[in-house]
């Protein structure tokens, strides 16, 4: 086998190896830049419209983000299913917090809004500063406090 062929094969192999790495990174691109959906332009426009007015009400939340406590960083995509929060193993968000009850609270959608309801917890659920005593609508970006965990809804 001639030197030149081997040199070409060698360079080709390294190029293919790097192409593999780049392909792998592009598969997980959504991790870095968010999902690219067909409705992306519409969403962008909505976001631009919503930005000047920080007060929510416009648009529906798409994600529930844990912003404080041991589970910080967890993101749950909102669907039409209610989300249960508590220490029970079958809760959507399982807390390991001594201050949380096993079925602490639940979040459910109603008429385009998400409602938080305390399920008779021992230490209570707080929406911003006030204790949740009956089902209350949750605006975007307002923290819900359950024990040491803080969650909020985002678009």
């Amino acid at each position: 086998m001639s030197e030149l062929t081997l040199l070409l094969i060698r360079l080709a192999f390294l190029a293919v190896l790097w192409f593999f790495v780049i392909a792998a990174v592009s598969v997980i691109r959504t991790d870095l830049f968010g999902p690219r959906t067909a409705t992306a332009p519409a969403r962008k426009a909505a976001k631009a419209a919503a930005r000047p007015t920080v007060k929510p009400k416009k648009g529906e939340p798409r994600q529930m983000v844990v912003t404080g406590g041991p589970l910080q960083g967890t993101i749950i995509n909102l669907t039409e299913t209610p989300i249960t929060i508590g220490r029970a193993n079958d809760a959507t968000l399982v807390l390991s917090d001594d201050y949380a009850s096993s079925r602490h609270a639940r979040l459910f959608p109603q008429d385009g809004q998400w409602i938080v309801e305390d399920l008779g917890s021992t230490n209570g659920t707080y929406l911003d500063r006030s204790k949740v005593t009956r089902p209350t609508p949750v605006p975007l970006g307002v923290p819900i406090r359950i024990g040491k965990t803080v969650i909020e809804l985002r678009k």
């Binding site: 390294l14 190896l17 792998a24 997980i28 589970l71 967890t74 993101i75």
Partner: peptide, 26 residues
């Protein structure tokens, strides 16, 4: 080639840590 191999390892680890972030229970 070594850098590509190390990046492949790094990506495996990244996927694992990403799983840890997305996981729903402690």
């Amino acid at each position: 080639g070594l850098m590509a191999l190390l990046l492949v390892y790094a990506l495996i680890v990244e996927r694992g840590l990403r799983t840890a972030i997305a996981a729903r229970d402690p």
